[in-house]
C-alpha cells in the first residue's frame, strides 16, 4: 500500500539518492512548486490531476540541489505581485460580502436597463447582459457563490480529509489500507462526472455544490496529510513524547497535527483556486446554484450565445474568474514556498 502511494513519486527520478529523504519512499513535506498545483487538482478538470504529483520527484531534486549548493534555505520575500494577488482576492471577498450595502443594481432584475450595453455605457461600468442586468453587480454577486464554495469546500475537505489522512498515516496497517483504498476509489471517478451526479441527486443549491466539491477535495487532501503524517510520525520528538508515556490521542493532537497543518494550510489557497475553477465548470454546465442567482460560470454560458456581437458579456466573468484563480494560485504558491517545513534543509 505505502509502496503504491509513495512509490509513484520517488521512482520518477532514477539514481538520485539525495531526494530519498523520506525513508520508505515517503514524500517529505517539501514539494515542488508544480506539485502544489497538483495537490487538489484531481478535483478540477482532471488534466492536471495525478499528473503533477509525479512531478514532485524531479523538482524536489532540484530543490535539494539548490540547498546542497548554498547550505541554507533561500528565504523568499513576498514581492509586489504577491501583494497584488492578495489585494485582488481580499478585494473580491470584501465586495462580495458588502454587496447588499453598496447600492448595486439588483443582479436578478431583468429589463431594468437596455440589454447588451457595452462597457462604460448608460451608467453601467461593465455594461449589461442579454436581459439588461447590470454586469458589474452580477460579477460581484457571482463572487459570493464562487468564494463561498471555494473556501467552504476546502475547509470541509481539510476537516474530513485531514481526519482520514492522519488516521491512515499514524496508525498505518489495516486502517491505512482501507482508508487509502477508499480514497483511490473516490479518485477513480472522473471528478466532474461525480460532482454532476451528486448535484443532480441532491438538487441545485449552494450547500449541495459545496458538498459535491468538498467530496472531490477529500481524497487529494487525505493523501497529502497522510504522507505528511507518515514522515512526521518518524521524527524524534514523536518518539520522545511516546517514551514519556503520551497516549496516541495526545501525540496526534499535540505533536503531529501542529506540524502537519502548516503545509496543509499553505496548500489551502491553491485548493481554493481549484475549487473555484470546479464551481465555475459546474456553473458552466448549468449545474451550480440555479439561475437567476448569478454565478461566473453561468454568466459565461449565457454570454457565449452573444459572442459574435457582444463578446464582453462572456469575457467579463471569464476575465474576473481567470484573474481570481491566478491570484489565488500565486498567493498560495508564494505562501507555500515561504512556510514550507523543509526537512531536508534542517
Amino acid at each position: 500500500m505505502s509502496e503504491r502511494m509513495g512509490g509513484r513519486r520517488t521512482r520518477t527520478v532514477p539514481n538520485r539518492p539525495y531526494e530519498e529523504n523520506g525513508g520508505d519512499g515517503t514524500p517529505t513535506l517539501s514539494e515542488s512548486p508544480a506539485q502544489s498545483k497538483g495537490v487538489f487538482a484531481e478535483a478540477e478538470t482532471e488534466a492536471l490531476a495525478d499528473a503533477v504529483i509525479a512531478d514532485s520527484g524531479g523538482a524536489a531534486a532540484i530543490d535539494s540541489l539548490k540547498e546542497a549548493d548554498t547550505g541554507v534555505l533561500p528565504k523568499k520575500r513576498f514581492g509586489p505581485v504577491f501583494w497584488i494577488s492578495v489585494g485582488w482576492v481580499v478585494g473580491i471577498i470584501v465586495l462580495a460580502a458588502i454587496a447588499s450595502w453598496i447600492h448595486l443594481p439588483d443582479p436578478k432584475a431583468t429589463g431594468v436597463a437596455k440589454p447588451r450595453l457595452g462597457l462604460f455605457s448608460g451608467g453601467h461600468l461593465l455594461g449589461t447582459d442579454e436581459l439588461g442586468r447590470d454586469q458589474l453587480s452580477r460579477v460581484i454577486y457571482g463572487a459570493r457563490v464562487s468564494m463561498t464554495v471555494g473556501f467552504a469546500s476546502i475547509f470541509f475537505g481539510i476537516i474530513v480529509g485531514g481526519f482520514f489522512g492522519v488516521i491512515a498515516g499514524f496508525f498505518r496497517g489495516k486502517s491505512e489500507s482501507v482508508i487509502m483504498g477508499g480514497m483511490d476509489v473516490l479518485l477513480a471517478f472522473p471528478a466532474l462526472v461525480l460532482a454532476l451526479a451528486i448535484i443532480t441527486f441532491l438538487g441545485q443549491n449552494l450547500p449541495n455544490v459545496i458538498l459535491a466539491i468538498s467530496i472531490l477535495a477529500i481524497a487529494p487532501i487525505a493523501r497529502l496529510i497522510r504522507s505528511a503524517t507518515l514522515s512526521v510520525s518518524q521524527r524524534e520528538f514523536v518518539l520522545a513524547a511516546r517514551s514519556l508515556g503520551a497516549k496516541n490521542w495526545r501525540i496526534i493532537t499535540r505533536e503531529i497535527l501542529p506540524v502537519v497543518m502548516l503545509p496543509v494550510f499553505s496548500y489551502a489557497l491553491i485548493g481554493v483556486a481549484v475549487a473555484v475553477t470546479a464551481e465555475g465548470a459546474l456553473a458552466f454546465l448549468g449545474l451550480s446554484v440555479a439561475a437567476p442567482t448569478p454565478t461566473w460560470g453561468g454568466m459565461i454560458t449565457d454570454g457565449r450565445v452573444y459572442l459574435q456581437q457582444d463578446p464582453w458579456i462572456a469575457f467579463i466573468p471569464a476575465i474576473v474568474l481567470f484573474i481570481t484563480v491566478l491570484a489565488l494560485n500565486f498567493a498560495g504558491d508564494s505562501l507555500r514556498t515561504r512556510f514550507d517545513v523543509r526537512e531536508g534543509g534542517l
Partner: peptide, 24 residues
C-alpha cells in the same frame, strides 16, 4: 523522460473525464 512518461500515462486516464467540458 521518466516523469514525463508517467505523467503522460496517468493523464491518458484523466483526459477521458477532462474531455467532458471540452466536448460540451
Amino acid at each position: 523522460t521518466f516523469s514525463l512518461v508517467t505523467v503522460a500515462g496517468l493523464n491518458t486516464g484523466t483526459l477521458i473525464g477532462g474531455a467532458l467540458i471540452v466536448e460540451v
